[in-house]
Simulated assay, not measured.
Amino acid sequence: MRPSVLRRTTARAAALVLALGLALAGCGGDDDQPFAGRVLDNPYQVPETPLTDTDGQPFSLAADTDRRLTLVFFGYVNCVDICPAVLTNLASALVRLDDADRDDVQVVMVTSDPDRDTAPLLRDYLDRFDPDFVGLTGDWTTINDVAKQLAVGLDRRDPGGHTTQVMGIDSADEAPVYWGADTTPAQYAADIHTLLED
């Protein structure tokens, strides 16, 4: 895919959101599902910084994400509420996609608790949701640096004190869209299809 295709698609999605909003305001609403993600006017640049996957291999969110769309979430294994809910919603969204869309999407979770989330523990945790999910770890400073460049706030003293958005990374190594923790599987699936449609 050409690097600018996803950006053009997100721009079309933003226009669609505006058009739908105006149409719904005029007619009192209907059952059509608007684009749920937030499209950024200035996409975040994804850092080349390598982290480490659960096989112990270097993995960069820029260099090693080879799908048209990569969904990145920062979370941790001992999270009891938001992290499992987000991962469940992402896994449920993927099964709603047709094979072509599914093959173009990758899900990555970066641990916000590298002091406790060992690679085997992280792998076992993600396998409960989808064995294709990629788990990344590393030293705290590196993870925090990557998170900051994607506007994700982390707190080493409180791993649960992280922001909960899911970032969408395109093949141009930019993050032009994100979703909140309350995004439903149906919303993710619809948005993913919209973003990949071209």
Rank of each mutant, 00 (worst) to 15 (best):
V105A: 05
C79E: 14
V86K: 01
T10L: 13
S4I: 10
F73H: 14
D30P: 01
R8Y: 00
N78W: 09
T65H: 06
A85Y: 02
R128I: 06
L69F: 10
D117R: 07
G75P: 06
T49P: 13
L121W: 07
Q57V: 08
A23N: 02
R7T: 08
R8F: 00
L90S: 10
V110Y: 11
D30S: 07
L51W: 09
P58G: 04
T65A: 14
D99M: 00
V105Y: 06
V95W: 10
F74C: 08
R38H: 05
N89F: 00
L121A: 15
R67Y: 04
L20Y: 09
N78A: 13
V108M: 09
D115Q: 14
T54K: 04
N89Q: 05
D30I: 03
P34R: 03
D53N: 15
P34L: 04
V108Y: 09
A85K: 04
L97C: 07
L71C: 04
V5W: 06
G75I: 03
F129P: 14
S92L: 06
I82N: 02
P50M: 09
Y44M: 12
R116A: 15
V5Y: 05
D104Y: 01
T111F: 10
D32I: 07
R116L: 13
L69Q: 11
F73E: 09
F74I: 07
R102T: 04
F73G: 06
R7Y: 03
R67E: 14
P114C: 03
T118C: 03
D99W: 01
G56L: 11
V5C: 03
V95Y: 08
D53C: 08
L126Q: 13
A119Q: 15
D99V: 04
I82C: 00
T10E: 09
Q57C: 08
R123Y: 07
V77M: 03
G56R: 09
V110C: 12
G29V: 12
P47T: 13
A14K: 09
R38W: 02
L61K: 11
D64F: 04
R8M: 00
T88N: 08
R68K: 08
L87E: 10
L40H: 15
C79L: 08
L6F: 05
A85H: 00
V108Q: 12
A19P: 01
P50I: 09
A100F: 01
V72A: 14
A63L: 09
L6V: 08
D41M: 02
Q57K: 15
G56Y: 13
D32N: 06
P58T: 05
R123I: 07
N78M: 07
F73N: 06
L71N: 08
A119V: 10
G37Y: 00
P43M: 06
P58W: 10
M109V: 05
Y76E: 10
D115H: 11
S92H: 02
P43H: 06
D66L: 07
F59A: 12
D101P: 00
D113H: 04
C83D: 03
V105H: 08
L69C: 08
D103I: 00
A19C: 02
D127F: 07
V110F: 08
G28W: 06
T111M: 11
D103L: 04
D55Y: 08
G26A: 05
A63Y: 10
T52L: 13
C79N: 10
S60L: 10
D98Y: 11
A91E: 11
V95N: 11
V77T: 14
R68A: 15
A85T: 14
Y125G: 15
R7I: 08
D64N: 15
L69G: 10
V39M: 03
A85L: 06
L22F: 02
V105I: 09
D127W: 07
